[in-house]
Amino acid sequence: MTNNAEDPLHEQLDALRTDLTDVHMPGPHAARRRGARRTRNQVTGAVLAGVAAIAIGVIGTTQDGIFAAPEPVGPTQSPTPAPTDIPTVVPSPMPDEQQETGAELSEALMTADDISGDELTWTVSEEPNPAVECGPPINEAAVLDEAGIDFTADDGNGMMQHLIRTESETVAEELLDDIQDEMESCLPESPVEGEPWRYNVGGLENVGEEGWITSYSTDPADQDAPAPTVTLVRYADVVSVMVRTEPTRSNDGSLDLETPAQATARMCEVLFETTCVGQPEFDDGLGGDASTDDGDTGDGG
């Protein structure tokens, strides 16, 4: 700690304390109750999802023919917008203009053609990619409908997209917030020893109605530890969760914004018959001075 005794700015900031005199903090019991409620909600969501899965399994088994297993989703099932189809201006439809087309979520999933930026050959994987540490947690209680797809490429590269439809736009907003909050809590910037370390975090602008992206290392001490990039995008009542995993931290700080942009363009086109993607931009919250910040890639705060 530094000595702030003769620091005028310290004195000014310290004086703000007087504004807090009448501010009431509820006490430790309220914080514990709130923490317990958060835990309960997360557990309830997981249990409900488990019960639903078992119930569907039982009914599906006993009433064969009522529930047919869905066909695996392939990369050629939905139209592929060409990169040049992306306009430079994002139309801003009013909420009441967000007409859903009635298409299934599975039809709006990304395809291998949407994955850009390298020479890897991506194929649809029948098996889900392994979960990554601090990966996006989904509160299943918020899920009305969902669909997912996994891709793999050589050398341990993986890509996953999960589309989630919720009851309403508000629920979708809350779901996106919850996922983001949980991930941010899971990834503090290293005051806790041994926690993972992030090297990109910020808003994904001009993609959907709101977007967020983060890259992190699952082990900062090990350059060979898997390095996921998680992208969350919301449009209307649908949330898209994308996780790209690289086998090592080869990321030099640059971000692949095109893949989430392509995937989101497809989602909006198929589900809403609209264009919801402009020129994707990463907003690390640093304003215009990020590039001159001694090589800082942005920590979002």
């Binding site: 700690m1 000595n3 702030n4 620091d7 900031l13 310290d14 290293s190």
Partner: peptide
């Protein structure tokens, strides 16, 4: 900007050194 504000508060109010802020923020 957010990042500047955070650094200012950590240094001038909390009293953390540049190195300590670097550790806490990862920058």
């Amino acid at each position: 900007p957010e990042a500047q504000r955070r650094a200012i508060v950590l240094h001038h109010l909390v009293g953390m050194s540049v190195e300590e802020i670097s550790t806490e923020t990862g920058a």
